[in-house]
């Protein structure tokens, strides 16, 4: 709907955050470019969700600066839909700023076609499968005048095949309705298939320990050489060796244990 998205911006400057004694994030600097899909990966418990909450403004950092312009919406891992509203009422939440009901209706219909859920308008979330629910959440977040999507492991609660399908679906939606996206995941494969840029976070307190630009064309199949290389790089960065990297001494350790 919105053509003029030249004013969205998302910048973290020297952001630190802690919960009591627990330092979660330390001197973090991240700039997300317009229309970019940035994926954050890192060891579990490194503060990825805290980082998203800082980006969305749900929590304020202890020090540093978060610059945020444009309408930000978050897609959650699950249960982000309001269970007391039907699918179309949920999506209409994203179209609240449109006052003309005819345009709203038109937009709603297009979104249903986009997520291939035409016919499910009057269903309630608990009547849908997990994958369908996430598609509705995507539609709601992308509806209307949103600028930035924050995605908190949106596909992690789904089965593998649905996850593969939804990755493709997300890219298709973004091709039709470009948005700036920050995507958090622990799934390295997912990161490499989706990202324009991957930021690898360190253990707590989190800082960006390396950055990876991925240029390969979409759709990226999993046997694409650049996908495989990128995945290897990330695994190395995270200190997770692939089996071919196991040296003999480590192998002996494993077998004697």
């Amino acid at each position: 709907m919105k053509d003029n998205r030249s004013n969205s911006q998302l910048v973290l400057e020297n952001v630190s955050h802690s919960f009591g004694e627990l330092h979660v994030i330390k001197d973090l600097n991240i700039t997300v470019e317009q229309g970019e899909l940035v994926v954050l990966v890192g060891p579990s418990g490194c503060g990825k969700t805290t980082l998203l909450n800082l980006l969305s403004g749900h929590i304020k950092p202890i020090s540093g600066n978060v610059k945020r312009e444009g309408i930000i919406r978050t897609v959650y891992q699950q249960d982000g839909l309001f269970p007391w509203l039907t699918v179309s009422e949920n999506i209409l939440m994203g179209l609240r700023s449109i006052s003309d009901t005819a345009i709203q209706e038109q937009e709603l219909r297009e979104l249903f076609e986009l997520i291939h859920l035409t016919g499910f308008e009057n269903h309630y979330p608990h009547e849908l499968s997990g994958g369908m629910r996430q598609r509705v959440e995507l539609a709601r977040a992308i509806a209307g005048d949103s600028d930035i999507l924050l995605m908190d492991e949106p596909f992690s609660a789904l089965d593998y095949q649905t996850r593969l399908r939804l990755r493709r679906e997300l890219l298709r939606l973004l091709a039709k309705r470009p948005r700036t996206v920050v995507f958090v995941t622990h799934d390295i494969e997912e990161a490499v298939q989706l990202a324009d840029r991957i930021l690898i976070l360190s253990k707590r307190p989190a800082y960006v320990c390396s950055e990876l630009q991925i240029e390969a064309q979409h759709p990226r199949s999993l046997d694409n050489p650049s996908v495989i290389t990128a995945m290897k790089t990330i695994l190395d960065e995270l200190g997770l060796h692939t089996s071919s990297d196991l040296d003999v001494s480590e192998f002996n350790n494993l077998t004697t244990q």
Partner: peptide, 25 residues
């Protein structure tokens, strides 16, 4: 808490928050 986070993203405030989020929840 997720419902209130979602409500904030979609600009529900005050009375509307009470009648459209808290009460149905």
């Amino acid at each position: 808490k997720i419902y209130f986070n979602v409500a904030k993203d979609y600009n529900y405030k005050g009375t509307e928050l009470l009648t459209k989020v808290t009460f149905p929840a």
